Amino acid sequence: MRYVIVGTGNISNTYVSALGKLAGCELVGAVSRSGRALAAAPDLPIWPSLAAVDRAFDAVILATPNGLHHQGAIAAAELGKHVLTEKPLDIAADAMATMTAACKKAGVTLAVCYQRRTRPDNIAIKRLIDEGTLGQIYAADLSAKFYRDQAYYDSGDYRGGYSLDGGGPFMQQACHNLDIYTWLFGLPQQVVSMLGTFAHDIESEDHGAALLRHANGMIGTVVASTAAKPGFAARLEVHTEKGSFTLTDDVITQWHVDNLDNPAQPGKAYHHDGATSAAVTDTTAHEAIIKDFEQAVEDNREPLAGADSAKLTTELILKIYNSQKPI
Rank of each mutant, 00 (worst) to 15 (best):
V6L: 11
V6R: 10
L19W: 10
L19T: 00
A23I: 00
V31P: 14
R33E: 00
L44V: 06
W47M: 00
A52E: 06
D54L: 11
F57Y: 15
D58M: 11
I61E: 03
G67F: 06
H69T: 00
H69M: 10
G72P: 08
I74A: 06
L79R: 10
H82E: 01
L84I: 08
L84K: 08
T85G: 15
K87R: 13
K87Y: 03
P88L: 06
I91D: 02
I91A: 04
A95H: 13
A95P: 05
M96P: 02
M96I: 04
A97F: 11
T98P: 09
T100G: 15
K104H: 09
K104F: 04
T109V: 14
L110R: 05
Q115T: 00
Q115W: 13
N122E: 00
A124M: 05
A124L: 06
K126G: 03
L134K: 07
Q136C: 07
Y138A: 02
Y138H: 11
A144D: 05
F146S: 09
Q150W: 12
G156E: 05
D157K: 12
D157V: 00
D157P: 12
R159Y: 12
S163L: 13
D165C: 11
P169M: 05
M171K: 09
L178D: 03
I180M: 12
I180T: 10
Y181M: 09
Y181N: 01
F185L: 10
L187K: 08
P188N: 00
Q190N: 11
G196Q: 06
I202C: 10
E203F: 13
E203L: 15
S204M: 10
E205H: 12
H207F: 15
H207W: 11
A209W: 10
A209T: 01
A210S: 09
L211P: 00
L212K: 04
H214Y: 15
H214W: 13
M218R: 14
G220D: 01
T226P: 12
K229W: 10
P230Y: 08
A234R: 00
A234S: 06
H239K: 09
K242V: 01
G243W: 11
F245P: 03
D249K: 14
I252S: 06
Q254T: 01
V257P: 14
A264Q: 08
K268G: 01
A275I: 01
V280R: 15
T283I: 10
T284R: 15
A288G: 13
I289H: 09
D292G: 13
D292S: 13
N300F: 15
N300Y: 15
R301W: 04
R301K: 12
R301E: 02
P303R: 07
A307M: 10
A307D: 09
S309D: 01
T313L: 07
K319S: 13
I320Q: 02
Y321E: 03
Q324D: 02
K325T: 02
P326D: 03
P326C: 06
I327C: 13
